[in-house]
């Protein structure tokens, strides 16, 4: 029982990331509404970030901010005591760049609505055919 729980916990985050990734991909492919496709894109992005952050986690560690004194005295840092900061850095910028790309996607979506009067994919295709 304990082994099963340990196995599930050691894999759980990856499974969740994969499920989220598939949900996002399904939304991007199968949904007819363009805004739903954009929401699918943000879910896909969250799945990737979840994967990276899970990789950076460490058992028995704390947040990557060093304990330090004000007198400048500083003892040697033990790397195992702090979580891996590198995935955090990469994902921090990815989130902010993600919101800017979301803005661009929404702007194009509003432009499509202005030109075609709808954001349903099949209706847009009908107006192009005419």
């Amino acid at each position: 029982m304990e082994d099963l729980l340990a196995y599930i916990i050691s894999r759980y985050n990856y499974w969740a990331a994969i499920i989220l990734l598939l949900i996002g991909l399904y939304g991007m492919i199968a949904k007819n509404n363009l805004l739903k496709k954009v929401i699918g894109m943000t879910i896909f992005q969250a799945a990737i970030i979840l994967f990276y952050v899970s990789i950076g986690d460490k058992r028995g560690a704390t947040i990557p901010i060093l304990a330090h004194g004000h007198d400048g005295a500083h003892q040697a840092v033990e790397a195992a005591a702090y979580a891996n900061p590198l995935p955090h850095v990469l994902m921090l910028t990815a989130i902010v760049v993600g919101v800017s790309t979301l803005g661009v996607a929404l702007a194009i979506l509003q432009k499509i609505y202005r030109v075609h009067g709808t954001i349903e994919e099949d209706e847009i295709l009908e107006t192009i055919d005419q």
């Binding site: 969250a46 970030i49 952050v53 899970s54 950076g56 986690d57 460490k58 560690a61 704390t62 947040i63 990557p64 901010i65 979580a83 995935p87 955090h88 850095v89 994902m91 921090l92 989130i95 902010v96 993600g98 919101v99």
Partner: peptide, 15 residues
């Protein structure tokens, strides 16, 4: 929960 406080802060503000 996964010790990524900076990422969490960004997500709370942005997402």
């Amino acid at each position: 929960e996964m010790l990524a406080v900076d990422v969490a802060f960004t997500e709370a503000a942005v997402g």
